[in-house]
């Protein structure tokens, strides 16, 4: 977690944040207005970028995805929702490389069944965390119901990062490595945190994403009659806390 601040001392990492954010925003913009409208099945390929950035550029991806999302909002959708959008995307760019480092010592190239498994375990929680966090935030503000936005984001994130991610990484990893731009080659990384602490974080993260998604949907669809009617904001909040604590311990 320290690296999120340490990285700002490296000029190249600063540049990578700018590049990642600019790229994310540029690919995001053409599809911007149609995300919130359900039933619109347009795919948003940009959602694969935070994952790819994360596994290549590490901490720069977390900041880059958050900044990129804010810039995307500069094309008309700036509001309180932007804050949740930024944090949700921060998590989306932050979680994959943390989990990858915990689960594998190798390069993020998916060539084997085991590689694919590690990839899925690193990326799926990130996809859910992003959807749950943003869905929770906009529901809290009363902008869009949790179930509408969280699930759309989640499905789109999963779809593009599971299909596109491995292909893109197999082409990009060797190149980025050759150009000396992989985060491990630019900056000193702290060693992976101790097995026990990280294990706890890992567990909390999964609890948070699964619980948040389940409870959020249940409350949003009013499947729990009598209990916390429509109160997604309060009901999901504990899971949001789990996600954030878990993500930083991992």
């Amino acid at each position: 977690m320290r690296e999120l601040l340490d990285m700002w001392r490296y000029t190249k990492m600063v540049v990578l944040v700018g590049l990642a954010a600019g790229l994310y925003a540029a690919v995001l913009i053409p599809f911007k207005p149609i995300t919130i409208i359900p039933g619109f099945t347009e795919i948003r390929p940009a959602a694969v970028l935070p994952v790819v950035f994360s596994l290549l550029f590490g901490p720069a991806a977390a900041w880059g995805s958050a900044f990129g999302n804010i810039i995307g909002d500069f094309f008309g959708t700036l509001g309180l929702g932007s804050i949740f959008g930024a944090i949700g995307n921060f998590l989306y760019g932050y979680i994959p490389y943390r989990l990858w480092r915990r689960l594998s010592a190798g390069q993020p190239v998916i060539r084997s069944g085991r590689g694919l498994l590690v990839y899925l375990l690193a990326v799926i929680p990130a996809c859910i965390a992003c959807g749950v966090f943003i869905g929770w935030g906009v529901d809290l503000l009363g902008l869009v119901p949790f179930a509408a936005l969280a699930n759309i984001i989640l499905v789109n994130n999963l779809l593009v990062s599971l299909i596109l991610g491995p292909i893109l990484l197999s082409v990009l990893v060797p190149r980025v490595k050759r150009w000396g731009l992989a985060y491990g080659d630019i900056m000193e990384m702290e060693p992976v945190s101790s097995v026990r602490l990280g294990g706890v974080g890992h567990l909390l993260l999964w609890l948070g994403v699964i619980g948040g998604l389940a409870v959020g949907n249940a409350l949003s669809f009013s499947l729990l009659p009598g209990l916390l009617k429509g109160a997604v904001g309060v009901g999901v909040a504990p899971f949001i806390a789990l996600i954030i604590i878990g993500a930083f311990l991992v």
């Binding site: 190249k12 795919i43 970028l49 299909i163 596109l164």
Partner: peptide, 21 residues
């Protein structure tokens, strides 16, 4: 259709990141 974004995303990505140095 999702896979068809590979030939789009790779050149854009490479163009952007190549200039980091």
């Amino acid at each position: 259709r999702v896979k068809k974004y590979v030939p789009l995303l790779i050149p854009i990505f490479v163009y952007a990141v190549r200039n980091t140095d």
